[in-house]
């Protein structure tokens, strides 16, 4: 097990694996996402109460899922950075923070547009929405802090500490709708319980969630590869790999 762990820490090993998996992640992600969205937009029945505006759920829920999952994975990587000083963990955090920022923004934006016809307002300062806004600022803070510190090692540690400090926000986002009175309704899409929607609405949602996860995997791979290239360009294996790829 430890051997696998050390292999995982090797940028060279990761580079090879990522190159092999990326076409599958991209193709699978695009296919599943397209299937889920087209099904959800055109074929799923409308909701008895909200009519067609509920179709925003097929992008709102996957974006919100990813926004939180990405932060959790960043927090795990931050622990690895702080405890084991593994370079690849830090590469991961830096590569995916902008992706997390984008999905958080999308969750907030689609939520605001959905809120107008259903709730009657774009924005309300309830616990769920506010916690999500804090997540957006956390992602922004992580990116800014990383840019602000020139030294690679101290930047890695500072960013890891900030990510860990922010991780308390994740259970707040998840349970805000159960702990406090909020305008936002409780979760519809849960992996552990029976869904609160019929199959013909739940399946397209599942497809788009899975598709977006695969696309995130692809994004993480390509962005990590870029970051590794930047950092390891003085090493021999990168030099050989780049010069071999040119021919």
């Amino acid at each position: 097990m430890w051997q696998f762990f050390h292999k995982l820490g090797s940028p060279k090993w990761f580079f090879g694996i990522a190159t092999r998996f990326m076409p599958w992640l991209l193709a699978g992600g695009l296919l599943l996402l397209a299937a889920g969205l087209i099904w959800g937009l055109a074929f799923a029945p409308k909701d008895y109460l909200q009519g067609n505006s509920y179709r925003i759920i097929f992008i709102h829920v996957p974006s919100a899922f990813l926004a939180q999952s990405i932060y959790i994975s960043m927090a795990v990587a931050a622990v690895v950075t702080l405890v084991w000083r593994m370079k690849l963990a830090d590469v991961f955090v830096k590569a995916i923070a902008p992706v997390g920022l984008l999905f958080t923004f999308l969750a907030l934006f689609t939520g605001a547009i959905w809120g107008k016809p259903t709730w009657g307002t774009w924005w309300v300062w309830d616990a769920r929405l506010t916690a999500m806004l804090i997540l957006l600022f956390l992602y922004g803070g992580v990116i800014a802090l990383d840019r602000a510190i020139n030294d690679e090692k101290s930047a890695a540690r500072a960013v890891a500490v900030l990510v860990l400090v922010g991780v308390v926000n994740i259970p707040i986002i998840k349970y805000s709708v159960d702990w406090w009175n909020t305008l936002h309704q409780p979760a519809t899409f849960k992996l552990t319980e029976k869904p609160t929607m019929p199959m013909e609405m739940w399946l397209p949602l599942l497809l788009s969630v899975l598709g977006l996860y695969l696309l995130f995997g692809w994004l993480a791979c390509i962005r990590m590869k870029t970051e590794i290239l930047v950092r390891e360009q003085r090493t021999r294996w990168v030099r050989e790999l780049v010069l071999a790829g040119r021919k």
């Binding site: 909701d47 109460l49 909200q50 009657g120 307002t121 309704q185 409780p186 519809t188 609160t196």
Partner: peptide, 18 residues
């Protein structure tokens, strides 16, 4: 002076609701 609608996590097609 302002009324917002709150909805629950239940979604269903109109026929099912009927």
């Amino acid at each position: 002076d302002q009324v917002l609608a709150k909805h629950d996590e239940q979604y269903m097609p109109p026929e099912v609701a009927d």
